[in-house]
Structures are given as structure tokens and as C-alpha cells.
Amino acid sequence: MKRFKNKKILMLILVLALTLVAFTGCGNSNKVEDSNEKVETKDEKSVYPLEIEDQFKNKVTIKKKPERIVSLAPSHTEILFSLGLGDKIVGVTSFCDYPEEAKEKDKIGDYEGINIEKVIELEPDLVVQYGKGDEGINNKIKEAGIPIVSFEPESIDEVIDTINKIGKITGKEEEAKNITEDMKSKKDAIVDKVKDADTVKVFYEVWHDPLTAAGPGSFMDELINLAGGENIAKDAEGEYPNFDQEQLIERNPDIYLAAKDTEDKTVESIKTRPGYEAINAIRNDKVYLLEPNIVSRPGPRIVEALELVAKTLHPDLFE
């Protein structure tokens, strides 16, 4: 009886000991989880302040994750929306019309310039502009304590880099990676489709008075090359040079491209210009007007622009 009682007591002690171990184990597990949560939170917070360098080598400190963003260019507005930042955008230019939601945002400028007072009034914690911008305006924005970053991509690779940079600045790196990987894949597919096609001579009209071409270094020059064309202005001086009519007629493009950027610009208005009747593109009815918002904006839709140019140069390959 005594042995049975001692055994019973021993079993009770053992059960209590196991229970205590299990309880302690659960406690340690919770502590580990809590510890991990704290580490993750610390890591998330450690991203900001974030020091970055924009395309013009300006070193900019982003103190916190941007919650109020102003875009000073349609292409940048498209990038921000593509990253899922539409609800963070508080100001855009009057030219920012894509996607549709962009039209509902407060307007901070138009063709006459940027309303700097309006920009500051919106209290953004990030301004994204195209090109170097105006030094006076840049200084006023900085004096207001607002970080400003500048990008001016002129190639598909530079657009991809800009999207990734803006993604990093805004905490949308994963979204930026997905977008840019998709862009690369589509670009490669288009280039592969036209790689064996006969090269055609192309002229791209940026403006008609004075006649201005897409020259070397412009993103349209790259799109023409990737799409299986030869830009007849490839050796001109500058990205958007004046191009005289005599030179145009002499180089005799097979295809004449322009953006439908004004109501009075039509295929017929181009074809009936004095002297143009000697150009192959005119004689063979190869004048095409392209959607300006696609072919004029170096943003997420630049691969759509590549496809549009490729289909225009080699329509038989895309039937």
C-alpha cells in the first residue's frame, strides 16, 4: 500500500513537472515570436530615413514613408499609379490624364508652369519631377522641408530603373519589381518577333514647325531600332534636333511617324506639304499618326509604345 502511495505521488510529481516544462516552453515560444515581431518592426522602421540618389546625382533624404505625393509629370504620375500609390497622390499637373483617377487630383500646374504656393499648401512629403526642374522652384520646395527627386528617363532601361527607384523611395519595391520584370518580358518578346524582319527607314516627327526629329539618345530613337527600323535622324545633333526638309527628302524614309498631338495634324495635312510628294512614305501611303499619350511618355506604358511602333513598321508579323 505504501509502495502504491509512493508511486502515485511520483506520478503526480512527474505530471506536474511535464506540465511546467510545457508551460515554460509555450512561454519561451511566445517570447521568441514577440522578439521576431520586434525585429521585423525595427527592420521596417530602419528603412527610413532613406538616403537615395536620383538620376541627376542629387542626394536626397526621405525621412519617412511618403504618404502625400506630388507629381510634376504625366509619366511619373503613371508610375505612381502603377505602383498602387493612387491614394497617396495629392497633386498632379493638368496634363496628367492617365489613369482616369489622375484627372480627379488637385492640379498644381499647367503649360504656364508650376504653382509653387499650391505645392507647398498641399504639404507633400515627396515631390517627383521630370528633368532637373527650375532651380528657383527646387530651392523653394527644399526650403519648405519637402524632399524632391528628379528623373528623366530616355530609354526602356532608364524607365525601368526609374520605376525601381520610385518603388524603393515609396516602400513599393516588390510592386516595382513585378512591373519591371513584366516590362522586360514583353520587350524581349517584341524584339524577338521582329529580329529577322527587313529593316525599314523611318522618320519620327516630334514637331512640324520647325520640323523637329527624334534624334539619337531619344527614347523614340530606341523604340524605332528595337522595332526593326532605322531612324534616318540617327546621326543628327541632339535628342530632338531641327531637321530640314531637304535632308528629309534626301534620306527618303519608307515610313513617316508622328504623334496625333493637335487636332489639325492629320495624315492628309502631312502628305500635302510642299515637296513631300517626293518621299517614299508619302507616295506609298505610309504615314501614321500614333497615340501621343503612349508614344510620348517614358513611363510604364513604354513597352506598349514599342509594340505600337513595331506593329506599324511590320504589321504582317502581328496579324
Rank of each mutant, 00 (worst) to 15 (best):
M1C: 02
R3K: 10
N6A: 09
K7Y: 05
I9R: 11
L10F: 00
M11N: 07
A17V: 14
A17G: 11
C26W: 15
G27V: 08
N28Y: 14
E33K: 14
E33T: 14
D34N: 15
D34I: 12
V39Y: 14
E44W: 08
E44A: 15
K45C: 10
K45N: 14
V47Q: 10
P49C: 05
L50V: 04
L50H: 02
D54F: 07
K59E: 03
V60W: 11
K65D: 05
P66Q: 04
E67M: 11
R68L: 02
I69K: 01
S71Q: 01
L72V: 00
P74D: 06
H76E: 00
T77W: 04
P99M: 11
E101Y: 01
A102N: 03
D106Y: 00
I108H: 02
D110F: 00
Y111C: 03
E112P: 00
E112R: 08
I116T: 13
I120L: 05
I120E: 04
L126E: 00
V127R: 01
V128P: 00
Q129V: 00
Y130R: 01
E143P: 08
P147V: 01
P147Q: 01
I148D: 02
V149E: 00
E154Q: 14
S155M: 10
D157H: 03
I163T: 08
K165D: 02
G167N: 01
E173W: 06
E175P: 13
N178L: 13
E181G: 06
K187D: 12
I190S: 09
D192V: 01
V194G: 04
D196C: 08
T199C: 04
T199S: 07
K201T: 00
F203M: 03
Y204Q: 00
V206Q: 02
P210G: 03
P210D: 04
A214K: 05
G215C: 06
P216N: 06
P216Q: 07
P216M: 09
G217N: 03
F219W: 04
D221R: 02
D221C: 02
E222Q: 09
I224W: 09
I224A: 07
N225I: 00
G228L: 08
D235H: 09
P241W: 15
D244V: 10
D244R: 11
Q245Y: 13
I249R: 10
E250C: 09
D254S: 10
Y256H: 13
A259S: 15
K260C: 10
K260F: 09
E263R: 14
E263Y: 13
T266Q: 15
V267Q: 14
E268D: 15
I270H: 11
I270L: 11
P274V: 12
A278N: 12
A281W: 09
I282C: 15
R283M: 12
R283A: 15
V287Y: 12
N293A: 03
I294A: 09
V295E: 10
R297W: 07
P298T: 13
E304Y: 05
A305V: 12
V309R: 11
A310T: 03
L313H: 09
E319V: 08
